[in-house]
């Protein structure tokens, strides 16, 4: 019999304590298959962002292990592992995290900074033709082809977030991590962005992990919902099976 393929992400007994603080994550185990779309929910401060950052080595972990995209590490990924993981991962933050004084196109080209020859990704004018075309095309996919030359500080919040999504997608990642991508947007723009995510993720077969404190978003856009509480996993089930009773207590710290 064929054994099931390795999961894209396997977290085992993950613990995380920031220096001088209380433990944020105590014992988190989680595995995510290729192509899944997972919503991570939990109260403010429950450690959602921390968990996502630990996956790509933006924070050291204090215990347990992480295997992401075939790279297994404890404490922190080595330099080669880190590069391998991040090259295949797109990360979208709550705040767009774009360089405001550069054009939308340059910011999308930044998505290639993890690739070999990365100095050519400093801004669009240095980039090789193939990268510029890919960036232009991805901007088109987020419906911003006409804003390629506009500077970020001239864009609206929703447009900026879509540029950030384009930056995360331009390198054709296998994994897309989005940490409250809609929190700084109005509800309509929020639904646009989430819809775009799911569509792009489905079409390109990208695994999607996103956090939200909006239960409606989580249920509508996640196939599976993972709830964090008290440093551990409160529940982890397909979104169709989540009952109101499950949610009691998730959002009140």
């Amino acid at each position: 019999m064929l054994s099931p393929p390795d999961p894209l992400i396997a977290v085992k007994g993950l613990a995380k304590t920031y220096p001088g603080g209380p433990p944020v994550l105590r014992d988190v185990s989680l595995s995510i298959r290729d192509g899944e779309s997972v919503a991570l929910i939990g109260a403010n401060g429950s450690g959602k962002s921390t968990l996502l950052k630990c996956l790509v080595g933006l924070h050291d972990i204090s215990g347990g292990s992480v295997a992401a995209l075939g790279e297994r590490f404890q404490t922190r990924p080595g330099a080669t592992q880190r590069r391998a993981i991040r090259r295949q991962t797109g990360f979208v933050f709550q705040h767009h995290g774009l360089v405001r004084r550069l054009s939308a196109l340059s910011n999308v080209v930044h998505g290639f900074l993890g690739q070999p020859g990365s100095w050519r990704a400093f801004c669009q004018s240095l980039a090789p033709q193939s990268w510029r075309e890919a960036a232009q095309e991805t901007l088109g996919a987020v419906n911003l082809a006409h804003k390629a030359e506009a500077r970020v500080d001239a864009l609206s919040g929703g447009q900026a977030q879509r540029v950030a999504i384009a930056r995360a997608l331009v390198g054709k990642p296998r994994l897309l991590i989005a940490d409250e991508p809609t929190a700084s947007l109005d509800p309509a723009a929020g639904h646009d962005v989430m819809g775009l995510f799911c569509e792009l993720a489905r079409n390109e077969n990208i695994t999607l992990i996103f956090t939200s404190h909006d239960m409606d978003h989580a249920q509508r856009y996640g196939e599976r919902i993972v709830a964090l509480k008290d440093g551990g996993i409160h529940f982890d089930k397909p979104s169709g099976e989540v009952r109101d009773g499950d949610l009691a207590g998730v959002f009140d710290g």
């Binding site: 990360f91 933050f93 767009h96 930044h110 990365s118």
Partner: peptide, 11 residues
């Protein structure tokens, strides 16, 4: 914020 975002892309 952009610095963290670019670090996450492997820069």
């Amino acid at each position: 914020q952009p610095q963290e975002a670019l670090a996450a892309t492997g820069a």
